[in-house]
Write a protein that binds this DNA or RNA. Structure first.
Length: 139
DNA sequence: GCCAACGTTGGC
DNA sequence: GCCAACGTTGGC
């Protein structure tokens, strides 16, 4: 099963709002980047991803699960981009800040560190495990 | 608020 | 098809 990282500005869409959306989840729209689109298209129902707050928080705060695979984004007039549906799984015990990730030698290869502007990123199994460990989770 | 990184656009 | 100009994102 693949792992991902979803980036959101908490002022636009926060993990608290994601939790409030409940088990039904919500669509993850607004992606207008071809590489991010490629990642969205590769997602399968059941895949899990980190929920990252950019700008204000700069930290991974929770885990979400893909509950509906790629379908067209009705808010995109060009018709080129799509989205998936995700639901909140849980908040991390301890959020993992960007500073902490950058300070972790085993995570220097993370896309978050190297291409912070990409809004949907793949996360390797090892990176997933290490971040969970930093979050005080058992995985 | 600044600026680097990146993607997109448009003139040639 | 190249590349300069511009807009956006996001860390600092």
């Amino acid at each position: 099963m693949a792992h991902w990282l979803f980036k959101s500005e908490p002022t636009t869409w926060s993990f608290d709002q994601q939790i409030a959306a409940g088990k039904k989840g919500t669509f993850w729209n607004g992606v207008r980047n071809h590489l991010a689109k490629k990642h969205l298209m590769a997602m399968q129902v059941g895949d899990r991803g980190f929920f990252y707050h950019s700008n204000e928080d700069k930290a991974i705060v929770g885990i979400v699960e893909v509950i509906k695979p790629y379908y067209p984004d009705h808010t995109d007039e060009t018709g080129k981009f799509g989205m998936v549906d995700v639901r909140a799984v849980k908040a991390l015990k301890n959020k993992v800040t960007l500073a902490r990730i950058k300070a972790e030698p085993r995570l220097v290869g993370m896309t978050l560190v190297n291409n912070s502007r990409l809004s949907v990123q793949p996360v390797s199994d090892e990176e997933w495990r290490i971040v969970l460990e930093l979050a005080g989770e058992h995985g």
